[in-house]
Design a protein around this nucleic acid. Structure first.
Lengths: 346, 346
DNA sequence: GTGAAAGCGCTAACAG
DNA sequence: CTGTTAGCGCTTTCAC
C-alpha cells in the first residue's frame, strides 16, 4: 500500500490537508458535512497521523515518562510498584498518552538517560519515583525544564510538584490504634532510613507514641529496607526486646516478620500483634490476615498522571502538592478481632 | 537559554549542521580535528538532538514497545512479568533504545492502541506477550508491517518471529524426574488451557508419563490459571485422587498448592512431592524450598530485545525462532534431598 | 572532508 | 469555514 499521509488522503477526498488536520485535532472550524466525509475516509483508510511529524510541528509528543531511579532498586520485588505502574498505564490509556518506561540500572544509565529525558523533546513530562535522600539524578530532573511530578515526598520539596500519602499521620494513627488496643511495648520495623518515606513513617510512629505519653525506645526500632528478608532479620533483632506489638513500614516486611515470629514459636496476635503498611494483595504471601494501612495505589498512579497533565498544560509553577488519604484496615493480626467483634464486617 | 539546535550549534562553532549530524551519527567522513571540536562543543553545551525531528528525517524512532495484551491480565500478579520487564528495560538501556509500555486494559484500549502502534511510526518494533489462543489483537500485530517479536509460542506461529523456552521438553523432564524418584501417582496443575504455554506444559507432562510407560489419568489433572488461589483450589480438587507428587505449571500456583497441602495436614515432600515452573524468587512466598524448572527470565527479556533489533535491521523475513534452555533446580519439595545427598551442593 | 539544499509529515498562523 | 504557506529540527543526497 502506498504511504498514507495527510497530503495523499487530502488529495483522495478533495480537501486540503489542513482540513483533515482540523478534524483530527477536533477543531470546531469544520462544517459538519466535510467533517463527516473526512471521518469516513479516515475510517476507511485506517489513516493515523505520523507521530514524529506531529511532535515536531506541535512541540508536543503526547508521551510521558515513568522514571525509576537507581535508588529504587527494590522496584520489581515489592508488589507495590507493579501495581503503581498498572495504575499509571491505565490512566495514560484513558488520556490518549503513551507511556515510556525508564528503569535506571546504574550510573552509566543515569548519564545516558538524563539528557534524553530533558533535552530530546521526546517527552511532555515525567513521573519519577522518589528515591534516596540526596539523589542527584532526581534533583537534576526536577530542576530541568521538563514538567516533573515526584511520587513520594522529595528530599528537597521546595518548588517541586509531588504526590504522596500522609505517611506521618498514617503511621501515627496505626501506632495509636495499637496503643488503644492495650499493647505496652510497641516496636517498629522501618524501611531504609535513607528514604523520605521511611523517615516519615518513623516520625509518625514517634508521634503516635508521644501523643499517648509513651516513651520512644531505641531498642524497639529496627531498620529494614522494604524487602521480606529485612523484615525477617529485623524481627529477629527485636525479639529479645520482648515487643508485644510491631508496626511494620511495609506489608512485605511484615511478611518477613511473621516468618520470624512463627519460627520463634510465637503466635500472632496472641504473643505479638502486627500492623503493616500498603495493603498489597497478600493471597500468595501468607495466610495471616494482616491489619494494615491501606494506600490507594492504583488511585495514586491515576492522580499522578492527572497532576502531570495539569503541569504540562498549565505550567509547572506554582508547584503543586497532592496528598492522598490512607485507611487503616483492621484484620486479625492486630488482635482487635478478639477484643471486639465490631470490625468483623470489614 | 536559547533553543539549542543543530543549526545554532553549528553557527557557534563555525561548521555546517551536516557536520555535526555526521559526528553524532558516527559517520566516518569527518576529519579528526573537526570531530574533536564538535565533540567538545556538544559536551560543553549539553546538546542533544530533537527526537521528533530525528525520527521524521530518518524514519527511525529508536523506540520499541512492550505490549501486554488484555488476555495477559495476570500481568502484575505474577512476579514473572515484572522480572521480564526489568530484563527488557535494561537491555534497552544497553542498546540506547527507549521503551514504551502498553498495558491493554479492555477492548477500547485495543482499538485505540493498535493503530497507534502500527501506523504512527512511533515505534521501530514491538515485543508482545503471547496471550490466549485466538487473540485477534496479537495476530493483527504480527500481520502488520511493524517488526514484532512474540514472547511465548504464538497461537499461529507461521511466519511470525518468536522467542520461547522449550516448555514441552522441560515439563517432560520434570515429570520423568519425579517418576525416577519413585512416585506413582503424579498429578499436574495446569495454567488456563486457553494459552499455548499451558498446552505445551501439559503436553510435556503427558510425554513424560508415556515415555516411562505411565498412563495419563484425567483425575490427576486440574486446570488453574497461573494465580496462587487457583493453585490452592486445584490442589484441593486433586487431593481426593491421592496423588503422591504434583507438577505445577508455575511456581505461584505451587505456592497455592503448598497452602492446600498444609491445610489438609499433609507434609511436603513426605506425603506429596512438588515441582514448580519458573524459579521466581520465593523469599516472601513460602518457606518451602521448591524444586522447579528454572526459566532464564532476565535473559529471556534481553534476547527478546536483541531478536527485535535484528528484525528491525535486517527485516522480518524470514521469521526467526529462538528457544531458550531451562534447568531443573532440585530442592527439598520433590523429596530428592532425602533420597540422596548428591544434590545438596545446589 | 565539508557545505548547500531538499525533504520527512505534520500544525498553525494567515488570507480569503 | 477552507486553502495556502511557512516552518518544526533533523538526515541525507548531491555538489564541490
Amino acid at each position: 500500500m502506498a504511504e498514507l499521509t495527510l497530503e495523499s488522503l487530502a488529495k483522495q477526498i478533495g480537501v486540503s490537508r489542513s482540513t483533515i488536520s482540523r478534524v483530527i485535532n477536533g477543531s470546531p472550524n469544520v462544517s459538519p458535512e466535510v467533517r463527516e466525509k473526512v471521518l469516513k475516509a479516515i475510517q476507511a483508510t485506517g489513516f493515523h497521523p505520523n507521530a514524529a511529524a506531529r511532535s515536531l510541528a506541535s512541540q508536543r509528543s503526547w508521551m510521558i515518562g515513568l522514571v525509576l531511579p537507581r535508588s529504587v532498586a527494590s522496584f520489581f520485588r515489592d508488589p507495590y510498584f507493579p501495581q503503581l505502574t498498572q495504575g499509571i498505564a491505565y490512566s495514560c490509556n484513558d488520556h490518549d498518552l503513551s507511556l515510556s518506561l525508564f528503569l535506571v540500572a546504574n550510573k552509566k544509565d543515569e548519564e545516558k538517560i538524563l539528557p534524553r529525558l530533558t533535552r530530546s523533546g521526546m517527552l511532555d513530562g515525567v513521573l519519577v519515583q522518589s528515591g534516596e535522600v540526596g539523589d542527584k539524578f532526581i534533583s537534576q530532573l526536577t530542576k530541568s525544564n521538563l514538567p516533573t511530578v515526584v511520587m513520594g515526598r522529595p528530599w528537597e520539596p521546595e518548588s517541586v510538584t509531588y504526590i504522596d500519602v500522609d505517611n506521618v499521620t498514617s503511621a501515627a494513627n496505626a501506632t495509636r490504634y495499637l496503643i488503644g488496643l492495650g499493647y505496652q511495648r510497641i516496636a517498629t520495623i522501618t524501611g531504609n532510613m535513607s528514604s523520605t518515606v521511611s523517615i516519615d513513617r518513623l516520625e509518625g510512629y514517634r508521634k503516635g507514641l508521644s501523643a499517648s505519653g509513651r516513651k520512644f525506645l531505641a531498642d524497639l526500632v529496627a531498620e529494614g529496607d522494604f524487602t521480606e528478608s529485612s523484615g525477617y532479620q529485623s524481627m529477629k533483632k527485636l525479639l529479645p526486646s520482648k515487643p508485644d506489638a510491631v508496626f511494620c513500614a511495609s506489608d512485605i516486611m511484615a511478611v518477613g516478620a511473621i516468618r520470624a515470629i512463627n519460627e520463634a514459636g510465637l503466635t500472632i496476635p496472641g504473643d505479638i500483634a502486627l500492623v503493616g503498611f500498603d495493603d498489597i494483595p497478600m493471597g500468595s504471601l501468607t495466610t495471616m490476615q494482616l491489619t494494615t494501612v491501606r494506600q490507594p495505589i492504583i488511585q495514586f498512579g491515576i492522580k499522578a498522571v492527572e497532576l502531570l497533565i495539569d503541569l504540562i498544560e498549565k505550567g509547572s509553577k506554582p508547584a503543586r502538592r497532592m496528598i492522598l488519604d490512607t485507611e487503616l484496615i483492621v484484620r486479625e493480626s492486630c488482635g482487635a478481632m478478639q477484643l471486639s467483634s465490631n470490625h468483623l464486617g470489614e
